[in-house]
Nucleic acid binder design. Structure first.
Lengths: 237, 237
DNA sequence: TTTGTTACGATGTGATCACATATCATTGAT
DNA sequence: ATCAATGATATGTGATCACATCGTAACAAA
């Protein structure tokens, strides 16, 4: 394990599943993207192309494509040294992203309130059910974030605004790693105090076609999470 | 000129300046990005990597990087056939982008109204001056779009919200090619009826620190342009 | 012990080669 | 004459090689 142990322990990289469908570049992109969103790498940690190649079992080319794409989306960062790392999140950046997300996802919620199908609302009920259930488990919390993301995007998809949806996905991709990093078990306990309630209010807003209520519920949900990030995760600036 | 004349005339590609600074991939990206934003390629037109290589004088690698990045940003599109083309714009897509842009750029204008420096406002005056002057010229209109873009982004930069600014740039990149394609000389004549006035109102809003007035002026500016796009450029859907 | 130099290793970038596949034109049969 | 089969060409993708550059550690001099 020559120079591997810079900061990136070997066990973390080996959790990267080999790949499955599409072009190799696309597969590596999907794997790496998901790996970043569930907090597989810490903010500020540097990664190298050759580490990824050994982890994915491919050559440099697909890895290069995936990394460059992630960098273009803001999920990775290429330093002037040409080194690659997970971006660091500052407090100012967190606050700005919260502001933008409230606007973007608020619009999505309002549109969804007017268009969402009742069958989809029932899916939301189930998702929030499993979310509350998953919240009480003590093990790895990646599944919790997964369910939470699925809940939110089930609403956002109902807005039927593909451009807006793409931007929102990009925001989640950029802030995803820090959610997992900042919010550990302590964060989850604190989250359990408001998240399920906010979700219930969002479901109620969807059922009543109440756009304003939906936006308010979303604001308390996002605001609570960001509040925790600023308090628990000691961010620079 | 074997199979070059698919749809892409040789003279169009030769307008791509060789490159200048940074890594080759970055240079090709900048050149190609600018080439797309000034309407160098028509929507729906297909391009090939090897065409770009001969136009840029490099090998496949830098071109691949640039194209993949543009594709990740939505400025290019990779079909299931793995062919590369400039995305086609539908009416529904135009309308959604207008809605999202009004929200994004509206927020930027409001923030800018509270933070913009008086020296920057004077820059806006000058930019709008040259904009009006450029509007009366009959030659190639790429400079007109350039000045218009600079005017808008001078305001958006004053908002001091880098994340928001990045999203807005992405929207402009996606809709840029269609502006040039849809709005020809006819579009320019129609634009001259409202654009300078909207700009003046935006400047007045900045000077008076009036966020609401700024958003309204922006709305008439964007709305006017989109109106023209929907009317003049015969879009599918 | 500290500082400046040097040499080695590793990394990102670019070029070239190889290949599966899509596109299109030619050819052949009905 | 129309349509299907087939062959050739071109294109995107992946692998491998080569190289300039950066980081780091070993080493020497003070």
């Amino acid at each position: 394990m020559q120079n591997l142990g810079i900061n990136l322990h070997h066990s973390a990289l080996s959790r990267l599943n080999p790949v499955e469908s599409g072009t190799l570049g696309k597969r590596v992109y999907d794997e790496l993207r998901n790996f970043l969103m569930v907090g597989g790498v810490q903010p500020g940690e540097k990664i190298t192309l050759r580490q990824l190649t050994s982890a994915c079992g491919t050559s440099l080319m697909p890895v290069r494509e995936a990394v460059q794409r992630l960098a273009a989306e803001g999920a990775l960062e290429v330093l002037p040294n040409r080194a690659i790392r997970v971006p660091v999140m500052t407090k100012a950046r967190v606050k700005e992203i919260l502001k933008v997300r409230l606007m973007l996802e608020g619009m999505a919620v309002e549109e969804a309130a007017a268009r969402i199908q009742v069958s989809v609302i029932e899916q939301l009920e189930e998702l929030n059910e499993t979310f509350s259930k998953e919240m009480r488990r003590r093990d790895d919390s990646s599944r919790l974030f997964q369910v939470n993301k699925e809940f939110h995007f089930t609403i956002y998809r109902a807005a039927e605004m593909p451009v807006l949806l793409g931007i929102i996905e990009n925001m989640w991709l950029q802030i995803g790693p820090f959610l997992h990093f900042s919010l550990g078990v302590r964060g989850r306990e604190a989250t359990s105090q408001f998240a399920p309630d906010s979700h219930k209010r969002m479901i109620r807003a969807m059922r009543q076609r109440n756009a304003v209520m939906g936006r308010k519920a979303l604001a308390s949900d996002l605001g609570g999470a960001v509040e925790l990030m600023l308090r628990l995760g000691n961010l620079p600036d």
